[in-house]
């Protein structure tokens, strides 16, 4: 098993934490993981992305150029990474903010109106968790429980009250995947 994932969006959409949650969950499930942020002279509202590798083997390159899965949260990220998904790979797109639809036939595309759904659930900041829930459910290499365990590591104790809404967001994403 080798998963090479890129998650991309605006700064503040929680793309870095999504990647960290996947890395933590992989570690909990005793897999080898790496997490690499794109870093640079970024500005607020600019684009951010991270690469996560989850593998049964030792992780070689932490840098991912042909991802097996890509999750994009905004337009510029779609434009940049949609062409890079390797054939047979997966693209999950936040269709609330991504205007374009992928026309590629060699990859699996899942469009989710994640920002709208997050607002319906009462908190736009869980957009990322809906997408993550969909990703976990579809790709099936990590369990939802491990992600929830990871949340406890990423959140400080005074933020534990947010675990419940995050759980609901994960569930929502997972349920939506059922139709794909």
């Amino acid at each position: 098993m080798l998963q090479e994932i890129i998650i991309a969006g605006f700064g503040g959409q929680g793309v870095m934490s999504m990647g960290q949650l996947i890395a933590y969950a992989g570690m909990i499930e005793e897999k080898n993981v790496s997490w690499l942020p794109s870093y640079g002279p970024e500005q607020r509202g600019g684009t951010a992305n991270c690469a996560v590798v989850v593998s049964d083997q030792q992780v070689g390159s932490p840098l991912v150029s042909n991802p097996s899965a890509v999750i994009v949260l905004n337009n510029p990220s779609f434009d940049k990474f949609e062409p890079k998904v390797r054939p047979g790979g997966l693209l999950i797109s936040n269709s609330s903010l991504v205007a374009r639809k992928s026309e590629r036939e060699d990859i699996k595309v899942i469009d989710i109106r994640a920002t709208d759904l997050a607002n319906e659930l009462g908190n736009s900041r869980i957009t990322n968790m809906i997408l993550l829930g969909a990703f976990i459910e579809y790709s099936k290499f990590l369990s939802e429980n491990s992600i929830i365990e990871s949340l406890k590591k990423v959140l400080s104790e005074d933020k534990y009250h947010l675990i419940d809404i995050n759980k609901r967001a994960l569930r929502k994403g997972a349920e939506l995947v059922a139709v794909f």
């Binding site: 960290q20 790496s34 690499l36 870093y39």
Partner: peptide, 10 residues
């Protein structure tokens, strides 16, 4: 290098 400094691993 910058990559080693910035990346996360267990």
């Amino acid at each position: 290098d910058g990559m080693l400094g910035q990346m996360m691993e267990p």
